[in-house]
Design a protein around this nucleic acid. Sequence first.
DNA 1: TTGTAAGCGTTATCAA
DNA 2: TTGATAACGCTTACAA
Lengths: 341, 341
Amino acid sequence: MPDRVTITDVAAQAGVSISTVSLVMNGKGAVAEATRSRVQTAATRLGYTPSRTARGLAAGRTGNLGFVLREDHFRQSEPFYTRVFLGAEFEARRRGLYVLLATVPERYDASHAPRFLSEHSVDGIVVAGRVDGDFLDALGRSGLPYVLADYARDGAPSVQVDNEGGAALVAAHLVERGHTRAAFLGADRDHPSLAARCSAFVASMAAAGHAVADAHVVTDDGAADRTAGARLGAHLLDGPDRPRAVFCGNDALALGLLDAARDRGLDVPSDLAVVGFDDVEGAALAAPPLTTVRVCKEQLGEVALGVLAERAVPVGPVAARFDRASSVTQIATDLVVRASS
Amino acid sequence: MPDRVTITDVAAQAGVSISTVSLVMNGKGAVAEATRSRVQTAATRLGYTPSRTARGLAAGRTGNLGFVLREDHFRQSEPFYTRVFLGAEFEARRRGLYVLLATVPERYDASHAPRFLSEHSVDGIVVAGRVDGDFLDALGRSGLPYVLADYARDGAPSVQVDNEGGAALVAAHLVERGHTRAAFLGADRDHPSLAARCSAFVASMAAAGHAVADAHVVTDDGAADRTAGARLGAHLLDGPDRPRAVFCGNDALALGLLDAARDRGLDVPSDLAVVGFDDVEGAALAAPPLTTVRVCKEQLGEVALGVLAERAVPVGPVAARFDRASSVTQIATDLVVRASS
DNA sequence: TTGTAAGCGTTATCAA
DNA sequence: TTGATAACGCTTACAA
């Protein structure tokens, strides 16, 4: 262990005080150009990197941000949140921040509180996807700034997919294809994103003069996964008034519906048009390839981390900071038309 | 922001000095039972949690460990490393440590160095999966303790799947099924795990009296993915001496081989027995379901983090530390027999 | 424009 | 068994 190079070493090398070094390293204050470059040179020659820890202690900021998601969301094979994380980590790196990743169980209780809630070892937290409300309550009480990514809740700042826009694109697409009797398959009615997609879709169809029948809006209170898609899809396909087109709240549901259609010998898209949402990896590989709404997962993470950083780590000399008490940022979506519609 | 509770507050409450509080909080030194409980009470009443940052500065340890993997490994849809990470995070939590996750690109160069290499913001690093050798070199130079998980390199401490044991299980299984002319399909011959599986398999078969023909050992220097499995598999199936059983270096290759067999109208397992390694999610869902060697990914992460923590964060009053300069820990495997063999 | 010095919240050394 | 007190490496008033 070659003794760590500290600010003092640099100061000595450059023949200045440590505060000057600090100013230079942070681009703050007014330092004479000559001094600045002398310090820079000394720093690089010595291979000096400021200690995060010391900096954190002195400045009252850790430079760490937390990224929290539900354990099962992270474990699932569709790398949705993994990619959101990757985007967040990328943005964090750009900003010189670190990301501490922690998972919370599906059913949260206080004993599962990520340690950094109490240890103040992060400056803020990105919460990705749906999590237990109790966790969000605890988070709120902690006073730490946070941002929800791909989830929403009352007044909490969040970064979300443009669900409404995406749903409207789907409606327009189906109408253009001549569909007048479309259905919505959404499972979990408590999920804000699914709910938003549903109502925007229903509204768009109605606006186009093709109101969606009540019986054609299929939701429940369970998970919105492939199994649910197959189950609820079966219900829809076996019903008295089979729709000719179905917009599914997400790709998993759509894949399940495709399973159900196949079981019944229905041809997609001639007997039934199917559209999903998310553009997961499996969408393009489905049989037939799934028409869906594309969401850029990395961008979601990048933006979420950016929004959080603005709130939690207000840095920089110029920095005219604005923190609207609550904001919702939308990530644009677009429609990927494949063979299923 | 209700001013953070510090050690001073607790000391005041309990009527002792801060050093005593520190001793109590760390379970160190000899503190009278009465004093101890008085401090404990004060601490919980005030809701005191020691500051990680301050602790880090004073103790010269951050309490953070880094987890590094290749970006593409993390992004891929098979959640292999995601699960390794989950195991690591779990173990870290048990030990009161945090995990900083960072990715490195496939082709590493110094400009991609994770910041924590220079900023000393972690006490050690888990490197998961294969990474660019240059990165490992840089890591070595940094002097930070590290452990490789699911990868190996000269003398570096590592935690690995018991490749030899797994391969031997496969050989025994095939022999038991009456196979005398088995092949090995391994792609990337530079990958230590694949190489180990290959040689152990060949040795086991030979020991059983069924030597594997040289032409039946198929490797190259490319990625060991599904595409490679299909391509190299085609080569094997179209060759002059088609094997009746193939052990693939991993499930992705096996899935690709299954594709190639299907294309050729070969029935698995009657025409061709196929065995993989890893037991990825897709293995059980393949057609036919794949016989494979199961690896517990979470355990791999847990153990790797544990090994690292022992080296990097030697704590505890008792602590008789032993750090064998280099160690290799193996994670047991077992065979899951499904329909493909 | 630069330097002095007071913290930041701990741990650890030594006396008491 | 406990308590002063000096680090730890840095930021940030405030002085010069």
